[in-house]
Design a protein around this nucleic acid. Structure first.
Lengths: 196, 196
DNA sequence: TGTAAAAACTAATATGTGTTAGTTTTGTTG
DNA sequence: CAACAAAACTAACACATATTAGTTTTTACA
């Protein structure tokens, strides 16, 4: 009987959660069965319950890990002195890097949060709304000090967040474009546009 | 027994498909049951099968209706004489209007295509990839004639498509921002950036 | 109004679901 | 090596699923 082999610094629960993220990304939360997850882990389905509480708990772990990562980075950035354009640029770069380095989890958090149960669903949405609000305030500050044009700040934030989210479609093209070009060109596009 | 009441110019199948789009958007394809759909339609579940072939067929209808709408508009636009910037701007505006006027269906096509069955899944992906390719060619043309900066064209197309897709998050804010401001500011952002 | 087609219904099937109970195997530590 | 805890296993439950079969009701038209 193959036992779950956690790597360094990873509990068995972590291994299961990571495999769950990969599976949920591929098939969606509802279409993923615990039997499939068990197979990916190398174990029978009921054995998973020695390590986790429920299928739903896996989704919670994934979604809040991602949400907390973004919130933490924003905390840091806000407490930094300096130019607002640079702050925004750093946030955009952080989003891009999260998409590239933690693809499965970010994808699941973006697509499958809908299947969270209460009260986690509400908490997740509140946290995300709060995050957006803080970005909007940042935009408003930038407009006030004339670093940004006075476009509607909500539209700007929505455009930026959506654009970086779209990197989920970029996976197939990794070979043709370096991630540095991707990051730099997207930042440039979102800040300065594409018209010559 | 309540019968399905199709409006003018809509078969019963159309009514079911529209209700399906709404349900699939709200709960996801896999989490939506035919019993729920039947309830939304006002009928028992097996009765649906007098009008449709299968649950999967509903998803196919939704996804390809959306895909074909975008493809058709691109066909028209390509055959238009004129400035490439204007062509791109019109395409962006069309995407935005599709998101605003056909929200359920576009949302489902964007989020639930993964659950299409073969060969529809492959066909859908081929069609989408083809659409992207044509936009990239448009960008390349624009760069060649110096209308656009020479950013990586794939990154630009990805950024634009992703940004407009993100309008799915805009639903709650309809009251605060008019759709004209939204459309104009997003187009401005994607073409000219936000830096003053 | 009588009749055929359309579309609803009820009943049932076969399968898949997350999860629990109870048991056996494995790993670790004295 | 004995013994205890961790974690695997098999069996099973209770329920939900899409769909089919067969029947009854409704609708439309001559």
């Amino acid at each position: 009987m193959a036992k779950i082999k956690p790597g360094k610094n990873a509990t068995k629960k972590d291994v299961i959660t990571q495999k769950a993220a990969s599976l949920f990304k591929k098939k969606g939360f509802s279409s993923s069965s615990m039997r499939e997850l068990a197979e990916a882990v190398g174990v029978e389905a009921p054995s998973l319950y020695n390590h986790i509480g429920s299928k739903s708990e896996l989704l919670q772990a994934i979604c809040f890990k991602v949400a907390n990562a973004f919130t933490s980075y924003l905390d840091e950035t806000e407490n930094t002195a300096g130019n607002i354009v640079v702050k925004l640029e750093n946030i955009i770069r952080f989003h891009i890097q999260m998409m590239l380095n933690n693809f499965d989890e970010v994808y699941v958090a973006n697509h499958e949060w809908k299947h969270l149960r209460e009260p986690y669903l509400s908490n997740f949405l509140i946290q995300r709304r709060g995050y957006e609000k803080r970005l909007i305030v940042l935009m408003e500050d930038g407009i006030r000090v004339k670093e940004f044009k006075d476009n509607n700040p909500y539209v700007s934030v929505l455009t930026i967040l959506s654009a970086v989210r779209g990197l989920e479609f970029w996976q197939q093209h990794k070979k043709n474009i370096s991630s540095q070009v991707l990051e730099d060109d997207m930042v440039d596009h979102l800040l300065k546009g594409i018209i010559k």
